[in-house]
């Protein structure tokens, strides 16, 4: 039988996510890289006690046109589904415009592990690449180094960071073929392409699904080996 990873609906694609799952999502935080339909389906599905890994934990109005809004991980926090977040940019820039996550954090309803953005990207990449941990100079001399092993390599201080691996990754791509090869568009590639490598089950929300051979191999950023499920977004009206 020919490989076909296409799922009929967002609901079907997230139906087996259990309570307590660790899930990567959110691209960078803007509308372009956000797997909004999958996040919405996860909200409706209702799995609880989730650990979410993302650059943001939902920031309204970021990377979208004035007056527009889009679904982001904030709706999972609002719905009481999130136990912990691992993020680099968890709250809005302005304290006068608190996010759902900031309210929940101040109310001690959620835990936060704050990670510098490059370290977050590298920990996810390491998880996908089978690397257990790595020594980085980022965070030396700051709160980030607390409780971590330090060592000097090549005359420079480094701290040990451990890889991240998730049960699921909800990612957003531009095009998929039915084998699961993915192409992205512009800056919406960001965290999506690395999260795709670092989960047991990667689910891609895409604008268009084509037959194998229709994607230029030079544009395939995520090879099919990383992708388990694909769902097509409804066409924008």
């Amino acid at each position: 039988m020919a490989v076909n990873k296409v799922f009929p609906s967002f609901a079907a694609a997230v139906a087996d996510i259990p309570d307590g799952a660790t899930i990567m999502m959110d691209g960078f935080g803007g509308e372009g890289g956000m797997a909004s339909h999958l996040i919405l389906a996860l909200r409706d599905h209702g799995a609880k006690n989730l650990t979410i890994i993302g650059n943001t934990v939902g920031t309204s109005g970021f990377g979208t046109k004035v007056g527009r809004d889009f679904v982001h991980p904030g709706i999972l926090v609002k719905n009481g589904q999130v136990k912990k977040a691992i993020a680099s940019f968890p709250v809005s820039r302005s304290p006068s415009n608190p996010t759902e996550f900031e309210r929940a954090y101040i109310a001690r309803e959620v835990e936060l592990e704050m990670v510098p953005q490059g370290t977050l990207a590298e920990r996810i990449r390491a998880g996908g690449a089978g690397i257990g941990g790595f020594f980085t100079p980022t965070g030396v001399g700051t709160v980030v180094e607390k409780g971590k092993e330090k060592r000097t390599i090549g005359g420079k201080e480094h701290i040990l960071e451990i890889a991240l691996f998730a049960d699921y990754a909800l990612i957003r791509a531009c095009k998929a073929d039915k084998l699961g090869n993915l192409a992205y568009r512009g800056t919406s590639r960001c965290f999506n392409a690395i999260m795709a490598t670092a989960a047991r089950i990667t689910i891609a929300e895409v604008d268009e699904i084509v037959e194998p051979g229709e994607l230029d191999p030079g544009k395939i950023i995520t090879p099919a080996i990383y992708v388990k499920r694909i769902v097509q977004r409804p066409k924008e009206g």
Partner: peptide, 25 residues
């Protein structure tokens, strides 16, 4: 303005010849 072409501050930027894209890692 294109939601797939933003900077790290979430502002829309414009394309230029010789531009390239890559993942966060």
């Amino acid at each position: 303005q294109d939601i797939d072409l933003i900077n790290a501050g979430g502002q829309f930027v414009t394309p230029l010849p010789g531009m390239s894209f890559f993942d966060s890692a």
